[in-house]
Design a protein around this nucleic acid. Structure first.
Lengths: 180, 180, 180, 180
DNA sequence: AATGAATGAGTGTTCATTCAT
DNA sequence: GATGAATGAACACTCATTCAT
């Protein structure tokens, strides 16, 4: 049922109707509401699971040999995952729902570790945070996803630009505004 | 009324109801439909106007002395404008509405000129198009906008990262995927 | 303006919008309301005029040499006129509107004269009234009009059947129910 | 609910609002749409059921001893049924809705059988079709129904006239226009 | 007198949510 | 626990009617 919801949300964002999700899951509408009292609850569950998976992916790279490579690989893996979802939908949920916000805090923390290590190895510019990096990843993936007839891997192209922007070489000093 | 619609769309995207727009504009629902026969027409008008303004802003910099600076200034000005809107909404409209798509073509062309000149002056990496630049701008602004309680100028921070990514210094070769 | 209304009502019945009538008449909507305070008033005017014309047509045959032929000729002429209108619309108006009802009374009286004379000449069965005859005419014309892809003169075919039914030859006694 | 719809349609034709039907049925508007996804679907169901009943009534008389009487009895029974409906509404639906049109084809065919047998027994004039007979029945019933304050059985009076018109005695040759 | 902008009640339709079975 | 019938609050859109210009 979560799988069905994930697919539907990926395709049509939060405008998907519960009826469609139930149909795809092969259960009755009422059954969905037995498990998730509210549409919001279901969204929360799907989005939270998504972010949790990303958190795990980040944590698995905490001890990698090459912190720079570890970060870029994480971004590639996370991008692959995000690209299958409507990122704006994910993000908006994270901002509006307390439960998901908590999961996001964990994710940001996990990425922060990766970024800290990369910074120590001078693989990333010194003035960005984990939250910055996460946001820039979302930026690349989401923007690519807005073009329905774009080539499938467009997000990688944008991610490269973002990574170049995050690299220490030729970095312009950033305004002092940290994301939350 | 267009102003009211712009504000509502900025806050809630295309899910805003005509009733809410009418209420904000201080008119009756029917009055909105007098001016825009369809919700789509209203969206088209708002979004088209926005993109048209950006097109003008780009064109005004075609003859600038320093093409590199001209491009970055355009991005800053356009970002300021975009930041007041729901960028995903703008983009999605551009993809789904024929009339707006035409305006977008003009905008892309106008930016392309700026990018071409900047490229000639080696102010921007050689392997990006005007459409790429526009998309990266949207990425930065949109992503910053997803955090409602973020500091107001966060998008500038992200734009700097993006611009660094678009700069020739230390550019990693891009995958060969041009956006439409 | 009355002409425009007549055409529109003929095509789409009372569901026609005032806007369409105004457009066809080449005036503004407000102008229509200046002359007819209400949509009902306009309908009344159109329908009343129609029935009045039929009344005149009947009266012109009051003094005809052959009362039988006079009646059938009136029915043919009236049928031609009715066939250009949505008869149900005409009738329904006649029933629901006091002003039109009065015109209908005149029309029925005028036809009654024709029927009385025909009856005296044994050209029509003795047990029908003018109102009966009028209703049967409407029946033939209206029914034919319900078939949009029917041959143009179908109503004449039905009128012949009706006239045969109204003729004295082989008449079955009618139940004692006079129409109003 | 179908009963409520039938009553409302009978009184006000297809202009009846779903809200009114729901109110009469004692259910919420949404419930009506649960059963009939569209107003058209509801109309189709009501009208189709009506015509189907008539078809059955005709078929039950296919083997009657006296084909002439069988036909007139069918007309009386069908008239009784039609008289409770807005006939114009029924007919118009038959013309505009494909599903109902198919049911109408069956009904016409069933009546055609009755008419054929009656013709063989010289109980009806030779130059009318089943469709003609059906239309004349509708004509009689509909026309009577247009007068809200008419005596209840008025349609029988008109049906007698129509039947006399359809009888062989003294029949005037019909114009060569077959209804569809 | 003519206009057309403004209105607001009403229409068909959708959908999250409830609840008896 | 699962179901799906019922609900009612939206929503986009239409149109007769009013009224300032």
């Amino acid at each position: 049922m979560l799988a069905a919801a994930e697919i539907e949300f990926a395709q049509r964002g939060s405008e998907t109707s519960i009826a469609d999700i139930a149909r795809r899951a092969g259960v009755a509408k009422g059954t969905v509401f037995r498990h998730f009292a509210t549409k919001e609850d279901l969204i929360t569950a799907v989005v939270g699971a998504h972010f949790s998976r990303l958190t795990v992916a980040a944590q698995q790279r905490w001890d990698a040999q090459d912190p720079g490579t570890a970060l870029w690989e994480f971004l590639a893996e996370a991008g692959e995952s995000l690209q299958r979802q409507d990122v704006a939908f994910l993000q908006a949920t994270g901002e509006s729902d307390a439960a998901v916000a908590a999961v996001l805090v964990e994710l940001r923390a996990a990425v922060e570790v990766l970024v800290d290590r990369a910074r120590t190895h001078e693989a990333i510019r010194a003035d960005v945070t984990g939250a910055d990096v996460l946001m820039m990843l979302c930026a690349a993936v989401h923007t690519a996803g807005l073009q329905p007839d774009a080539p499938a891997g467009l997000w990688r192209r944008y991610l490269v630009i973002v990574i170049d922007g995050l690299s220490p070489a030729g970095a312009t000093p950033l305004p002092e505004l940290m994301p939350r």
